[in-house]
Computed example of a mutant assay.
Amino acid sequence: MPTNTSAMTHSKNSPITGDAILRVGPVNPEVAQALQADLGAQVLPEPGPEREALLEEHGTQIRVAVCSGRIGVDSELMQRLPNLEAIINFGVGYDATDVAQAQARGIVVSNTPDVLTECVADTALGLYLSTLRSLGAAERFLRAGAWAAGENFPLATRASGTKVGILGLGRIGQAIANRLEAFGCEIHYHNRSEKPDSRYAYHPSALALAEATDVLMIAAAGGSQSAGLVDREVIEAVGPRGFIINIARGSVIDEPALVQALANKDIAGAGLDVFTKEPSVPAELLNLDNVVLLPHVGSGTHETRADMAALALGNLRSYLEDRTLLTPIS
């Protein structure tokens, strides 16, 4: 792994011009417009000869990379940018970026926390209601003419007054808990560490949380620390009357085990906004009525995306001006 050699080629206090800024992958249109029109940033092509040519010619001069949470600066790309100083991430999640390498090289990384908390929590609540009450399946039932033909839609599960286990009681997890309390739900949680000020019941593991609750709500941060946290054993512990809701990252759950559990009705159902290999969704899920599928729309509102764009650009401009970040990840 190359070390950060920026000190050899320029001072970190020297101005950063557009040709030293690289856009990695698609980003929010407002961010893309600012990068192109205001800063003249370079755009990394898709894998192939054009990308290789750009990295060969300009890789050593890139000092700032701007990316999304879905397509970050991975290990290979980071190694090709020996003078990289900062990674500006559009999104609260940054697991697509090699943070370990960035930290080892002194590359600072920002994200866009807080501004998407409320909308993601709203999505979680929508998934919760739709999944337990089978609202999507009920709509398809009506549209297919089954109700008009005299059929009765199967009974669903009550959403109020349930025991909900929140896996990851961070900003988003707490916002979800606030909403569920209005439904009279009993809140339990598991975190990497217990929160002394929390009034909710703490459980020492994801398995213990699943065993104690009716619904497992996954709100854990993505990345290597949470990868596979909800494994086959945890899914089995949810049980045939329990549900899983995931608005975190697809990597947090053992997706093949979840697919099998849903197909076999080993759990009652699931609501999923995230998947392991987005935008690909396991084909087996598409025809199951006990799962609600969303195309990763947790923060997908006009208002939240505008706030995220403003914060991402604020981080970028702050770094260009005085080498500080408004919201560094640590």
Rank of each mutant, 00 (worst) to 15 (best):
P2A: 02
T5D: 10
K12M: 12
K12A: 14
N13R: 05
P15C: 03
A20N: 04
I21E: 02
G25I: 10
P26V: 00
V31L: 00
A32Y: 04
A32V: 04
D38F: 01
D38K: 13
G40P: 09
V43L: 05
L44T: 15
L44N: 14
P47F: 00
G48V: 11
G48R: 06
E50H: 01
E56Y: 06
E57N: 12
G59T: 14
G59L: 07
T60K: 10
I71Q: 08
V73A: 02
D74T: 13
Q79K: 06
V92W: 01
G93T: 15
T97V: 12
D98L: 03
A102H: 09
T112D: 06
D114Q: 07
D114R: 10
C119I: 13
D122Y: 04
A124G: 15
L125N: 04
L129G: 14
S130Y: 02
L132R: 13
R133Y: 02
A138I: 11
A144D: 14
W147N: 09
E151N: 09
F153E: 14
L155Y: 08
A156V: 09
T157A: 01
R158V: 14
K163T: 15
V164L: 06
I166P: 13
G168A: 06
G168L: 08
G170Q: 09
Q174A: 05
Q174Y: 02
Q174F: 00
N178C: 08
N178F: 06
E181P: 15
A182P: 09
F183S: 13
C185Q: 10
C185S: 15
C185N: 14
E186Y: 01
Y189L: 09
H190P: 14
L207N: 13
L209V: 10
V215S: 08
A219E: 11
G222S: 12
G222I: 09
G228R: 08
L229E: 15
V230T: 11
V234L: 04
I235V: 07
F243I: 13
I245H: 04
N246E: 11
N246I: 11
A248S: 15
A248R: 07
R249E: 07
I253A: 12
E255Y: 00
P256L: 01
I267Q: 07
G269Y: 00
G271S: 10
T276W: 03
V281T: 11
A283Q: 12
A283I: 09
V292S: 12
H296K: 12
V297F: 01
S299R: 05
G314C: 04
S318V: 03
T324C: 08
L325T: 08
L326A: 07
T327D: 05
